[in-house]
Design a protein around this nucleic acid. Structure first.
Lengths: 338, 338
DNA sequence: AAACGGGCTGACAGCGCTGTCACTTTGTTT
DNA sequence: AAACAAAGTGACAGCGCTGTCAGCCCGTTT
């Protein structure tokens, strides 16, 4: 049995192939009876429109590209899941494209992706979404894209963000409420604005509660487990160690917890630890980690929706969306000074 | 500036478009001087062949599909990375296609993927690679695919496997060597043959060392963290608990460790714990987990290579590959009865 | 010197769809 | 009943490539 084409369907249904095309693409202005007739023919022949023929004729690929340079597997998977969900709903495919942020080829590589017509538009995830050069290039090349990032970009390009800063603020307030006065903070990788912004929330919460910002309690991490452990070493070696440590992501918080275990510090009695992201590790470690859950999949889905809208009509206004985080209190935090 | 086509390049280089096509596709039998001339024209016009036109004319998509139904993010990401690496080398794209194993639509969905010409071939990962119905369908539809699975399939279809069983055997022997006599085992999800086969290695090691297989030490898990914890509860509640527990994967082993913490059991002094997979969590928990590392990315890369070979020539022989695992001893295991 | 064969090149016909536009049918208005 | 608008349909020309096949130009053989 050879693959049926649109002509076969048209012949069987007794209509023109253009009408079949209309039915397949759910276009309006087809009489219901005609539609049924065509649909019956499609079913009978098990007709599947050829993706490449459609792409060539319509001049679009029905594929979106997902760009990332993120070592965190769970984050990436969540983004993929959310993006895929929206893509499927719209009959689009998703092409994943991990890439190295610092390579010279990055720009040409990404441009080629679009120029070859392999994707119709792009989703940028942090930290790529904050690379000025990349964003600039895409804008001036007129390539449709949506950024997944908590920071706005000066030009009017669409983005999806969460209230990161607010969540960091809330978490810090919660720690203060628990009686903590000396709260260590581990800053995220300087290139990841999405993560470093969380520091702002911490600072704001201290100020709001009339606590002084002690710079010796703020250390620079690099988002990895190992860097978190290193930072914990620094903070816990102090003569006056903090009673709580808030890390800008879960991997670093996990590093803090390990270091505390190795120093026989009991948690949360002697030390409270909080993270950010709610990665799988957060509830698989002991004590389970108090953290902030971001609706990553939903954000990605939203980003795809915005991109698809952009691809259809030319909505000139900036599409943007803000989603909410949620604090999850688990075993790693408790009252201070017990 | 409008996008250049193959005609533009041909005109500029003063050759036919067919010759340009030959240069672009690195076909033989083009004089070096002609090749250079064409290449210069390509560079000057920044010509990028249209993916969809190529696909339509050549009747293939230059895209491979990656099918999975696996909740483990790190496993999936590793597979993606390996597969992508090989794809890029060959100028192919990778389409990810997570799917639910038990849905009725699975088969039609996957067939549509191929029938619409969106992918040229498929990579199946566990547990999909062990679904007889799916494999059977693909075989009889003549769709090229490669299975990532430790089990062979009765028909001659290509696969990539690891020496899982052997590694489980080695790990069990190592525990015995450390003095453990009562070793608990947590079996993997019954539908995941890739995981359940590890039990065979455990049994073989006991036999080899003249230890009786005590069925009360073998409990059925379902691959998840929670099920691992549940199994640990069962094993540790016994009047004569095991001195070591070997879980069929890391998530379940992490569950065991948490349960032990909650019972104030010190590890490895009072209990040794071993896992399988070396997921990120393995070195982020306390104590860090002794486990088995599989070369997942390499396996996926190999699978893609086999698939591409199959796509080119019709090598009738079964292509297959076996890769090796490695035991990683960390903090969670130690001598028995200390 | 004729015959041969392999390297190299080009003409051309599609691949299977969609966009455009012209056309026919139907329903609505005066 | 004529005039008009809107809904419904089809003819056709590509979209930008690759496969096929014919033909040219060589050097090598008899």
């Amino acid at each position: 049995m050879v693959k049926a084409t649109i002509d076969d369907v048209a012949a069987l249904a007794g209509v023109s192939m253009k009408t079949v095309s209309r039915v397949v693409n759910k276009e309006p202005n087809v009489r219901a009876s005609t539609r049924d007739k065509v649909q019956a023919a499609i079913d009978e022949l098990a007709y599947r429109p050829s993706q490449s023929a459609r792409s060539l004729a319509a001049n679009r690929s029905y594929v979106l590209g997902l760009l990332y340079d993120n070592p965190s597997a769970s984050y990436v998977i969540d983004v993929q899941d959310g993006a895929l969900a929206s893509c499927r709903r719209a009959g689009y495919d998703l092409l994943i494209h991990p890439c190295k942020r610092d390579t010279v080829e990055l720009l040409t590589e990404v441009l080629a992706l679009v120029r070859q017509g392999r994707v119709d538009g792009l989703i940028l995830t942090p930290p790529l979404s904050d690379m000025t050069e990349l964003v600039q290039t895409l804008v001036s090349a007129g390539i449709p894209f949506v950024r997944l990032s908590p920071t706005e970009y000066k030009d009017a390009c669409p983005y999806v963000q969460t209230n990161d800063q607010e969540a960091a603020y809330d978490m810090t307030c919660r720690l203060i409420e628990l009686g903590h006065r000396r709260i260590g903070f581990i800053v995220g990788h300087p290139d990841h604005r999405a993560v470093t912004q969380r520091y702002t929330g911490y600072v704001a919460a201290l100020k709001e509660n009339d606590l002084v910002l002690d710079k010796s309690l703020v250390v620079q991490g690099y988002n990895s487990f190992d860097s978190g452990r290193e930072c914990a070493r620094e903070l816990l070696s102090s003569a006056t160690p903090p009673s709580a440590i808030f890390a800008s992501n879960d991997d670093m918080a996990a590093g803090v917890i390990i270091e505390a275990h190795h120093r026989s510090i009991t948690m949360p009695a002697e030390l409270s630890v909080a993270g950010f992201d709610d990665t799988p590790v957060a509830h698989q470690i002991y004590p389970s980690l108090t953290t902030v859950r971001q609706p990553i999949a939903e954000m990605a889905a939203k980003a795809v929706d915005l991109l698809l809208k952009q691809l259809k009509g030319k909505s000139v206004q900036i599409p943007a969306a803000i989603m909410s985080c949620r604090i999850l209190e688990r075993e790693s935090t408790g009252e201070a000074g017990r």
